[in-house]
Simulated assay, not measured.
Amino acid sequence: MNGDLYPPKDTIPDVSHPQVKQWVSEIDWSKVPQIPVAGGLPDSPHFPNCPPDDEVDKRSCWWSCDGCVQPSDVVTCPNQSDWGLTYDDGPSVASREMMKYLNSNKISATFFIVGSRVLEYPDILREQVAQGHHIAMHTWSHAGLTTLTNEQIVAEVRWSEKIIRDATGLTVKYIRPPYGDVDNRVREILRQMGYVTVIWTLGWDTNDWRVAMNQIQPDEIMQTFENALDNRELIRSSTGGPGGPVTLEHDLTDGTIYLSKQIIPMGMNRGLRPMSLDRCLNDASPYQKGSLTDQKANGGAGNHTSLATKPGITTPGNGAADYNGSTAQDTKNEQGLSMSKSEAKAMIHNGAQTMGYTVMGLAMVASLMMAL
């Protein structure tokens, strides 16, 4: 990829760029809720800093600070036995080992791509597509989106969209906001750009990246995953019935790949069927533009799971939504775990205390490990 055609790696793109101005002009700003830009942590300005509980605006439906999800958010799989297998922050050199394992076991996965990493590893991204995996977006610089201005959000998404399309010919449809940081302002901007917001099932974040940061031992992650498996009956789909998990992992280092290789058979032995997010959602059109025909013809992982319609499962869309009038809902009986909002919020906050990292920093750790 010609780096001169894109913003600098791991930085929030310049909103004064003519291309960004054009993208910004395409948004109907009258439909975007007037929610203030969130503040960040002192040592990590683009990781959201949650205010006290009584200062959180319930109308904003701010997942990071209130555990709030909207019906349009993807948090679980509709089928109790389906497992949405997802990886964030790549592509990286380590991605190839993960892809090799998945392909040997006839498993497809969803890779949430950071635009800056495509500048470094476009060939690996193309290999993921050729092998039939599902590609989605994780923004350009991995900044918390609620900490960005409206124009910065557009720039982060559109530049990532462009470099992925330039490398693969596909315009992605699903986006996971970094740290799951989303509120109704962010949701509406993403919706107008054609995106479906994806978070993950509470309790099913593996925290695998913490091993690379020497913050946790692999055995602790395995035990946490075992505990999640023991409590699968708590998962609720968007319709309120039993649902399947959407996990959060990373294809960044040998360590995170090793953990995934251990976790996948653990889940399969308990009756879960790992698959890409589009398959767990039964979405036969998983991209805004582009076709899966070429992927299937290549005989990759995309051939291993049928896209046949599953009874009772609906595909998420990006139609009109009223984010201006929404209020925060208790997560009980909604998508995710059947727990109270306070319990959900505590879980999010506990993770947030150790999540104030940048993709650039973790990518540097990955590069150093690969060099050893």
Rank of each mutant, 00 (worst) to 15 (best):
Tyr121Asp: 07
Met98Val: 09
Ser141Lys: 09
Asp82Ala: 05
Leu277Thr: 00
Val24Met: 03
Pro7Leu: 00
Met266Ala: 12
Asp89Lys: 01
Leu190Thr: 07
Trp63His: 14
Asn231Trp: 03
Ser25Pro: 14
Pro36Asp: 06
Glu220Gln: 14
Trp62His: 15
Ile153Arg: 06
Ser141Met: 07
Leu102Lys: 04
Asp53Glu: 11
Thr149Asn: 13
Asn214Gly: 04
Leu170Lys: 05
Gly115Cys: 09
Tyr174Val: 03
Glu97His: 09
Glu249Met: 02
Thr171His: 09
Gly312Trp: 04
Ile216Phe: 01
Asp57Leu: 07
His46Arg: 11
Thr239Ser: 15
Ile264Asn: 06
Ala130Met: 09
Met369Leu: 05
Thr149Trp: 14
Asp230Leu: 01
Val182Ile: 07
Ala308Met: 12
Gln22Pro: 09
Gly244Ser: 07
Gly244Asp: 00
Gly290Gln: 13
Arg158Asp: 11
Phe112Thr: 14
Ser81Asn: 05
Gln192Phe: 01
Thr331Ile: 15
His138Cys: 08
Gly194Glu: 13
Gly361Leu: 08
Gln215Thr: 04
Glu249Val: 01
His134Gly: 06
Ile12Thr: 13
Asn298Cys: 10
Ser342Val: 14
Ser95Pro: 13
Glu188His: 02
Lys31Glu: 14
Ile313Ser: 15
Ser95Arg: 00
Lys296Thr: 01
Ser72Phe: 04
Thr86Gln: 02
Pro274His: 02
Cys68Arg: 01
Ser16Asn: 12
Met98Ser: 09
Ile199Cys: 02
Gln152Tyr: 05
Leu252Tyr: 06
Gly90Leu: 07
Gly351Thr: 01
Leu281Val: 06
Arg210Leu: 12
Val93Tyr: 00
Cys77Tyr: 00
Pro122Ser: 01
Asn184Ser: 00
Pro8Glu: 13
Asn103Val: 02
Thr171Asn: 09
Pro245Glu: 01
Asp283Glu: 15
Ile257Thr: 10
Lys341Arg: 13
Thr76Val: 05
Lys9Ala: 12
Glu151Asn: 14
Ser30Thr: 13
Leu337Pro: 14
